[in-house]
Simulated assay, not measured.
Amino acid sequence: MTSPKTKTLRLHYPVTVEDREVSEVTITRPKVRDLKAMDAALDGIRDKLDQGIVMAATLTGLPPEVIEELDAEDFTKLSEEVAGFFPQAKAHGTGAPSLPKPPTG
């Protein structure tokens, strides 16, 4: 079974940027060229949130400024969809999925 090449996400909280309303975003399944573009755009960026913004912008074709205007709930959903295009990490040597880190707090 193959994964779809794109996924459209309807925003719960549409945003207006430069007189343009954005009510949904289309996420494109990444190709190697997208990964290269992300890698170049992420050069020197250490902040995880900024990394997520760059990744979302690259795969949606939207400028980072639009991504930054999204409601936190919509950005979280978008980030989850983006992450879904990438294979899950495996634990070294066992072939078993790696365990999630325990919550801090």
Rank of each mutant, 00 (worst) to 15 (best):
A57H: 04
S79H: 04
T28A: 10
A91M: 10
F75D: 03
A91Y: 07
T60S: 07
R33M: 12
A41M: 03
V82Q: 04
A72P: 00
R29K: 15
T26W: 04
L49M: 12
L35T: 11
P87Q: 07
T94M: 01
I45Q: 10
L62I: 10
E69R: 09
A83V: 02
A72G: 08
R20Y: 03
G95H: 02
L42F: 04
L78V: 00
H92D: 14
D43K: 11
K7W: 13
E80D: 10
L62P: 02
G44P: 02
A37F: 05
T60W: 01
S79A: 13
D34Q: 09
L62S: 09
G52P: 05
P14H: 04
L70I: 06
D19F: 04
E73I: 13
A72N: 08
E69G: 05
G61T: 07
R46L: 08
T58H: 04
E65F: 01
V32G: 05
Q51M: 07
R20I: 09
A83Q: 11
K90H: 07
A91V: 02
T6W: 13
L70W: 05
V22D: 03
S79Q: 09
P14L: 05
S98A: 15
D50S: 13
F85E: 01
D47G: 07
A89N: 08
T104H: 12
S3Q: 12
E18N: 15
P102Q: 00
K77R: 13
P14G: 07
V66N: 02
K31D: 12
V54G: 06
D50N: 15
K5Q: 15
T6D: 11
F85R: 02
R33K: 14
T104P: 07
L59A: 03
T60C: 07
P100T: 00
Q51E: 02
R46N: 07
V15N: 04
T60F: 00
G84F: 03
P103C: 12
T16K: 10
A57L: 06
V66K: 01
T2V: 13
L11D: 06
R20C: 07
S98R: 15
R46F: 07
R10T: 08
G95P: 01
P64K: 00
E18V: 07
G61L: 08
T8M: 11
P97V: 03
T28I: 03
T8R: 14
P87L: 06
D50T: 01
P64H: 02
T16G: 06
E81Y: 04
T76Y: 10
D74Q: 10
G95M: 06
K31P: 00
M55G: 01
I27M: 01
A89L: 13
M1K: 13
D34S: 06
